[in-house]
Write a protein that binds this DNA or RNA. Sequence first.
DNA 1: AAGAAAGTGAAACGGGCGTTTGATCCGGGC
DNA 2: GCCCGGATCAAACGCCCGTTTCACTTTCTT
Lengths: 216, 216
Amino acid sequence: MTNQSESPDATKKRLLFAAGEEFARVGFGAASVRTIVDAAGANVSAVKYHYGSKEDLYLAVWEFAAKQMVSDEPMPRVEDFDDPRQALRQFIAWFMRLVLTESEEHPWAGQLLAHETVAPTPGAIDVFVANCAGPIKDEITRIVKRIIVRPTRGKTLDDLVYAVVALCVNPKHSREILIKLGHPPPTTRAGINRMAGVMADFAISGLDGFVSEEDN
Amino acid sequence: MTNQSESPDATKKRLLFAAGEEFARVGFGAASVRTIVDAAGANVSAVKYHYGSKEDLYLAVWEFAAKQMVSDEPMPRVEDFDDPRQALRQFIAWFMRLVLTESEEHPWAGQLLAHETVAPTPGAIDVFVANCAGPIKDEITRIVKRIIVRPTRGKTLDDLVYAVVALCVNPKHSREILIKLGHPPPTTRAGINRMAGVMADFAISGLDGFVSEEDN
DNA sequence: AAGAAAGTGAAACGGGCGTTTGATCCGGGC
DNA sequence: GCCCGGATCAAACGCCCGTTTCACTTTCTT
């Protein structure tokens, strides 16, 4: 099963990581199987042998990235906080670290996400929504509900939830443009936490405007 | 100059519009010249003849879209309002209409923008930043400065500006995911204006939290 | 009427793509 | 010693890509 002094499935793992890097860099459609296998030091046929096809390899990368995203650092839960505003603060910091951090632990998750958001791949978007986007949206909804207390109409509530999401993910999605505008998004943990603090202040003040008024 | 009972440059225009549709749908890299010329009822060689290359055609589409974006409806200026909060409200509504509206007037500008944001094309991003992103950022900066009055440190000010931008553009960038989550972004003028109202309330309250405190 | 110019069209170019094939290498079980 | 099966490899397959060529038609000029 093993081969020439390497651990079992070594090629398979190298393929997965090289694929993650390339898919994150240019997206599924523009990524080339040959570029990936070259980076992995493998042969083109290794993709078929270990994963079946380019698309199956992409799904494997997504599965791996999604698993890392949730296991790396647990998602803050509103139940663990006395103050829902503090919960939101912690959640935003967690979310922005998740999206922006470019570490060895999850180097491509955020960028994969950005590509999939704008140009979804039929198979992968469902995996992503079920494992990442859905749970995150649900938790933010719970937090926002506790902050604004008064029940608002469904549309407005959803708008506010997605407003919070927008604050967290846009620095990643708009990365190249922010760089061109001279304001590159942070990538270090300290920088991300600083920006997350500003976003949390902004979001908390923003939601406070909805506390005791208009159910419209 | 004209050809077989058609107005001059008819093929050139049909090419431009078909290209705009296709580039907006799948992005520059994934778009196919043959798909475009088929939709335009033209020959592959027409791209070279009228525009030079696929990339030049893309730039022509961008130039056209950018021109439409600014000429279609003038950008609200903070100088035209007594209350900077009212200026922000109008600006957000204008910006979200610009990004989200799918009309005959500017059918692809928003989607082109989304693709270029996540996966920039070397030539086009500079055109876009100079003609669209830059002016919009500058105007929002002016408005935000008037609202928060007290001078904040540069980083925080930029963060707040981009927070406002995030609220406006994220519904477009995350469109497919929002649909999967059961909250498709609005496309009609009325729906956009409603959502823009919520975002404006959120942003104004959010910025008000920065009015009389922390220059940090 | 003749010719230049503008525009169109079919076909092919070279190249990269994802995928497939069939041969080869190698460790472990009989 | 032999062979089986996991793993790897070079080579080629058919396809689509953006681009190019060149013959052709149409229109305007003189």
